[in-house]
Amino acid sequence: TYPMFERFAPVHGPLPREAYRQFMQFAGEGNLGSAEAPDFVKLICEAYLLPMGLMQRRGSEYLVSSRLDQHELVQLLTPLLDHHPSPRRVYEHLAAPVYGLVPDQIHLLLLTLLIQGEIDILKAGKSFRESYDALPNPLQYDQIVPGSGLNVNQLRDLQVLCEGFDIKVPSQWSISAQKRAIGQLKNASRRQRDVLNAFHSKLQGLGETSALSREVESCIQRWLALEKGEHELQGFQQFLFEIGSAAGFVAKASELAVLPAQFDSLLRETQRYRHLFGFPCVAHCHDTQVTEDLKKIGSPPSLADVGVSTSGGGNRSSRMTSGLIGPLK
């Protein structure tokens, strides 16, 4: 009667109420698959979500499957969601042949989709997220509805960011497509943060607390907003709040991205200038014309006076080079 049950069968018996409480609580505080998760959360991942294919093991941690929308059990549920079914209707559907899922499996399938933003479980208009302490069983709720994705303006910003960071724009912005794009944006964020963190450390190592150093740090902090929230959509919404303008952030991040390589080149150029002006024949030249010309040059500005500029490469190089001379003397 239930030929598909073995494919998703759990390896543990019924779970206590406390396991579900910890599962939801930890989902709001950290990564469900973390090696630091409470014991009940680890048990759920290992004994239920892993056999069901909702999570995958990576080392000592677990990752939510990247394409939940294509998961067999999710596709079994999806046609019902347009009708905003009662949880009881969903449980009956998933417990019927040929899958015959047990209540704990259905609980965890629904909670995983809830945490990932794919669905919401409502009672009197309030989400399971707000009420799980008092009402921990989805069967106590009124209806299950599709998750709410990004609004039109947020989708427009996401597209601007995707185009700005060479991420493929999907043909349709389904919730899963939104989350995949945000996941790729997070990967781009981590790559740039690694580069900018090293650059920031180099600036700090020169004893500089310049506007440039502050801009680098600000960009890193804005990227970090993507890591906040229970799932990708929440993190992205926080990120949009932090950056203000998607187009402006793309321009600033792109500008900062090229500076570390330029900085190394300019540092070498500065050392060459130091060497040149250090020659006694230049520093203590008897030719009054040379002496006068050197005086006209004046003292070079500190790097602290040099801002990030979007002007042409030659002008920027000369300004930054002169800015580097001062602190390195």
Rank of each mutant, 00 (worst) to 15 (best):
G248S: 00
Q262T: 03
R272I: 09
N197W: 03
E292G: 07
D133M: 15
G147D: 07
C285W: 00
A246C: 02
E92T: 10
S213H: 09
G248F: 05
F8T: 05
I297H: 08
R274D: 07
L303V: 09
A188Q: 15
L240N: 05
E255G: 15
K42W: 00
L111S: 05
R180T: 12
G149F: 12
N151P: 14
H83A: 14
R21N: 06
E163Y: 04
L155P: 02
Q237N: 05
L63Y: 03
T291W: 10
S86Y: 02
L161Y: 01
Q289S: 05
S302V: 02
S127D: 12
F236Q: 04
P3L: 04
T112M: 06
L155N: 01
A95S: 15
A261C: 01
V160L: 05
R129S: 15
R272M: 13
P280F: 11
L256F: 03
S201G: 13
R274T: 00
P138A: 05
L240R: 01
L77N: 02
S65P: 00
G205N: 10
Q22I: 03
S189A: 12
H231N: 15
L226W: 06
N151M: 07
E36G: 12
Y62N: 08
L259S: 08
S311E: 11
P280C: 03
L111D: 04
H83L: 13
S148M: 13
A251P: 02
L256S: 00
Y62T: 03
F8G: 04
G205V: 02
H71A: 11
G33D: 03
L135P: 09
G313A: 12
G205P: 13
G125R: 07
F263L: 12
M55F: 15
S213P: 10
Y62S: 08
H275S: 15
L266T: 02
F199M: 06
Q192Y: 01
T321Q: 11
G164D: 06
P327V: 08
M4C: 08
S299G: 05
S60D: 12
L80T: 09
G125Y: 05
N315F: 04
L113C: 07
P301R: 01
C45V: 10
K42V: 02
I115N: 08
D194R: 14
G229T: 12
S302C: 08
L135T: 06
L206R: 13
K329I: 07
A177Q: 09
H83K: 15
P85T: 02
L259M: 07
S171T: 12
F277N: 06
A27M: 07
P136C: 04
Q262W: 10
E255P: 01
L101F: 06
I167M: 07
L206C: 02
I325T: 11
Y62P: 09
Q75D: 06
S317E: 10
P51D: 01
F199P: 00
K202V: 07
